[in-house]
Amino acid sequence: MAKIPSQLLKGTLEGALLLIIARGETYGYAVQTTLAELGFGTVPEGTIYPLLLKMQKQGLIAAERHASKTGPDRKYYHLTAAGQTAIASFVPRWQQLAQAMARLVEAKDETSQ
């Protein structure tokens, strides 16, 4: 699978993170592996972590520390009510963008045939 350029990911990654956290309480490294499993490619923690901090500051997600077997206490993120509102606003916008892009790609394919 080709690597998605970070510039292309920039605007959508925050929405993707919110949707992953909305599935249930999760932690940093698990978010990173989930993104890879979903096909976003390897998104480094250096890209994900500042966004998680920003969303915490905005009150979209909240975090709690629990003991971890691997070493330091692990921070688990969960969605807040403001985060749910942000998802409700992000999803229709993303669908509109995806449909518009799909129509463009479809039109290009028809022209080239």
């Binding site: 940093g28 923690e45 972590y49 691997t70 206490d73 921070k75």
Partner: peptide, 12 residues
């Protein structure tokens, strides 16, 4: 922040 990053690096 360092605690979070070390926890992630150790898990990775």
């Amino acid at each position: 922040v360092i605690q979070d990053l070390l926890e992630g690096a150790l898990t990775a």
